[in-house]
Design a binder for these strands. Structure first.
Lengths: 325, 325
DNA sequence: TCGTTTACTGCAACCGTTTGCGGAAATGTT
DNA sequence: AACATTTCCGCAAACGGTTGCAGTAAACGA
C-alpha cells in the first residue's frame, strides 16, 4: 500500500490538489462541506503530509539538530530528554548526533544537520574541539545555534550553562557551615573550563579557612585511586566535582570501610542520580540537566521568533541534602 | 548568505543543472575536466545536497526513527548509542523519540516518523501499549520495523532481544555453583514479559535445590524496602533482576551495614554500569545494550537490502565477576 | 433584467534533485 | 568524403506540497 498524497485524495474526490490542500489547513476560501469531505477521506486514508515536500517548498523544517559528545552520560541524557519532550510538544522532531569527542565526527555531524536542513541546532562542543568554524557556518546560514554546557569562548552567541561558580561556592559554603576542618577536593580534567571555574570558585570561597587537599582525576578509576591515596591523611570531608568522581570516591570509601557520615562526610556536584544510589544518600548541589534543557529550548524558540539579541543564561543550583554530611 | 544549490553552481559555471548533478555523482557521461570544475566550485561553496529534495525525488531517505519509552535509562542509552553510531557510519541520521510510556504519545511519535518519511524504524514498545496497529501500519507502508527489548507478542516481525531466559539461568547456576543455601530474589513488575521470562528460568534452574524468597518491586525505593524486610531472614545471597532493583537492594544492604561478600553475596542481571559503582564490584550477568544495538542495526540493513524473511535474534549473555559472590 | 459582489475552486509556478532520452560535436571507420 | 560511433551535455518531467492569481457560478442590489 502506497502513501496517500494530496493528488490521490483530490483524484478520489474530483477536486483539485490546491483545494484539498486548503481544505486540510482550514483555509477560509473553502466551503465547510468540502472541508468535511476532504478531512474525512484524509483521515480514513491516514494521510500524513510529506515533511520533505513541505520543507522544500517553504524552506521551513520541523527538525532540530542536537550534537553532543555522548548521550551515554547522566547529565546529557536528562538534558536531551527535556529538549526532546519540549520539541515534540511544539511539533518539532529532534535529530540527535554524538561525536564521541572526535572533532572529525563532530564536523560530519554538522554536515548531516545542514543536509537535513534543520531549523535550529543545540550544540555541546567536545573537549577536543579547537576550531568552531563549522558552527559559525550554521550562523551564516541563519540557523540559530544554542550552545549548552560546554560552550565556546566566544561572544555574540547563545549559551546555556550550569552555574559552575555558584554551585562550587554553594558546596564550599555548606562545608564551612558544617564546621569541617580538612577537605579532600577532587576535580576533573584540568583542561576543561568547567573544572577551572569550579576549582576557582571553590578555593576562593574556602578562602584558606579550611585545610584543603586538591586533586584531579580523569575517570572513575583515577578518582578511586586518588581517594585511596589521600584517605590516610584523614580528611573529614570529601568533595567531588562530578558524578564520575563521586563514583570513584565512593568505591574508595567503601573499600576502606569508613562510615558515612560518622567517619567521613561526602558532598558532590551532581545531576542527582548517582547520589541516590548509596546509603546514606549523598548530599549534593544539583545541576539540573532537565532545567537546562527547557531553558535551551525556550531560548531556541525565541531565536526562531526573530529575537536576534544573544544571551548567556545559567541555571540556578540547589542544595539537596542527603545524609552524608 | 543563502544555501548553495545545483542551480546556483550551474549558473556560475554556465552548465545545466543536470550536468552539475551528474558531475557531482561521478557519472561516466561527464568529462573529467567538467567534473573537476564542478567539484571544486561545489567544495568552495560548501555545497550540501538538500536531503528533503532527494527524498522527495527518490522516495529514499537517510533517516531512521527510534521510538523508546525513555532515553534516560541505562540499558537504552547504550543501545541508542550503538544504533546511532552505526547509523552515522552508514550515512544515516537517527531521529529519536520517547514516549514516556504513554501510548498516546507513542502514536504521535509514529506519526512524526511517517511525516518525515523515515526509511526504517527501531521500536521498543512501552509497557502500556495495548494496540500495535500503528506499528503494523508502518509495515504496510513498507517501512521495516525492528523491535527491540520489549517486543510485541506477534509472529512475523523482526525482534532483537536480550537472552532473558539464558541470563537468569546463568545467574541461578552461578549461585548454585557457589554453594549458596538461601537466596532472596527480587524481580520487577509482574506484568512485564521480561519479568516472567527471567522469573521462570530462574526458578526452574534453581529447581528447588535452594531455599528461595521471591519478591517483586517496581522502583528503587520498593526494592530497598523489600530487601530491608527480608534481610532479617538471613539470606546468604541477593539476586537482582535489573539495575533498578540492584540499586535498591544495595541501599538496604549498606543501611544494615552488612559486608559483601562476607555477610551476604549479591548477583544481578545488568548492563554493567551500576555494578561497577560499588566496592566490591557486583558480579553480574551482562545484557549488553551495545551489542543489541549493533545487532538491530545489521538486521535493519538486511531488511533494507530486501531480505523479507523475519528473524528473532537474541544476544549472548556473559558472566562478569566482581567481588560480590 | 443586468451589472456587481461574494463564495468557491482551479491553474500554474515553484522548491532542489534525479534521470530517461535525445542531440550536437568530436572522433573513428571505410 | 560520407557515414557510424563515441563522448559529452541539456531538456523536461517528476516527486508532494504551497500559494498568488484568475475564473466561474450563484446570490445580491437596483
Amino acid at each position: 500500500m502506497n502513501n496517500t498524497t494530496l493528488k490521490k485524495i483530490s483524484g478520489l474526490l474530483g477536486l483539485s490538489i490546491s483545494t484539498v490542500s486548503r481544505a486540510l489547513k482550514n483555509h477560509p476560501d473553502i466551503s465547510e462541506k468540502t472541508k468535511q469531505r476532504v478531512t474525512e477521506l484524509a483521515d480514513s486514508l491516514d494521510y500524513e503530509p510529506n515533511a520533505n515536500a513541505i520543507q522544500l517548498r517553504t524552506s521551513k523544517s520541523n527538525l532540530f539538530g542536537l550534537v553532543v559528545p555522548s548521550i551515554s552520560n547522566f547529565f546529557y541524557h536528562s538534558f536531551i530528554s527535556a529538549v526532546e519532550e519540549e520539541s515534540r510538544k511544539n511539533g518539532y522532531a529532534l535529530m540527535i548526533l554524538q561525536s564521541g569527542d572526535d572533532p572529525a565526527i563532530e564536523i560530519l555531524n554538522l554536515k548531516l544537520c545542514r543536509k537535513s536542513r534543520i531549523s535550529g541546532l543545540f550544540a555541546c562542543i567536545s573537549n577536543q574541539t579547537g576550531n568552531i568554524d563549522a558552527y559559525l557556518k550554521m550562523k551564516d546560514l541563519e540557523i540559530p545555534v544554542i550552545f549548552f554546557d560546554k560552550v565556546p569562548e566566544l561572544n555574540n552567541c547563545n549559551k546555556i550553562c550550569v552555574a559552575d561558580e555558584a554551585s562550587a561556592a554553594m558546596a564550599a559554603n555548606t562545608i564551612i557551615l558544617k564546621n569541617k576542618k580538612k577537605v579532600l577536593a577532587v576535580f576533573g580534567n584540568t583542561n576543561l573550563s568547567i573544572t577551572k571555574k569550579r576549582l576557582t570558585a571553590f578555593t576562593k570561597t574556602m578562602n584558606g579557612k579550611i585545610d584543603l587537599l586538591v586533586h584531579h582525576a580523569n575517570s572513575i578509576t583515577e578518582a578511586e585511586a586518588i581517594t585511596m591515596e589521600c584517605l590516610p591523611q584523614k580528611p573529614d570531608t570529601v568533595f567531588c566535582m562530578s558524578d564520575e568522581i563521586l563514583a570513584g570516591a565512593m568505591k574508595a570509601i567503601q573499600r576502606t570501610g569508613l562510615k558515612i557520615p560518622d567517619d567521613i562526610s561526602v558532598i558532590a556536584i551532581s545531576n542527582g542520580f548517582i547520589p541516590k544510589l548509596y546509603f546514606p544518600e549523598i548530599t549534593y548541589v544539583e545541576t539540573s540537566g532537565d532545567e537546562l534543557g527547557r531553558l535551551a529550548f525556550s531560548s531556541m524558540m525565541a531565536c526562531l521568533d526573530g529575537s536576534t539579541f544573544t544571551q548567556e543564561l545559567t541555571t540556578m543550583s540547589v542544595l539537596v541534602e542527603g545524609g552524608s554530611m
